[in-house]
């Protein structure tokens, strides 16, 4: 196995670990804010590590550019949406539990 393939395996494994940590946090944490915290880790680092690992395997530079674009887009979306959800829980209708 070449060094490049090894790096890809390592990075995607780390990304998978962050995804698992995010889901475990989503299931185990006590309230919405803690779950939000776990979720942003999965969003940013999990997908980031997987995109970084796959970046080492791309055929053309254009493909790598698209991978980076997807990562940046997901990071921006997760930042905005997590702010919106936290704001909604803090100031919105509040108790919408069933």
């Amino acid at each position: 196995m070449s060094a490049l393939a090894f790096a890809t395996v390592l990075l995607t494994a780390v990304g998978l670990f962050f995804y698992i940590a995010g889901v475990v946090g989503l299931l185990r944490f006590p309230n919405v804010y803690c779950r939000l915290h776990a979720l942003t880790k999965a969003d940013n680092l999990g997908l980031g590590m997987i995109a970084l690992g796959l970046l080492l395997q791309v055929d053309s530079p254009f493909e790598g550019l698209r991978l980076l674009l997807i990562w940046i887009l997901v990071m921006a979306a997760s930042a905005f949406s997590c702010y919106l959800v936290a704001n909604y829980v803090r100031e919105g209708p509040g108790n919408d539990c069933d």
Partner: peptide, 16 residues
């Protein structure tokens, strides 16, 4: 759940 915000958070994670 329990709240709707939790459900939306789970959907957001599914998207990622």
């Amino acid at each position: 759940g329990p709240s709707n915000a939790d459900r939306m958070l789970a959907a957001q994670l599914f998207g990622t």
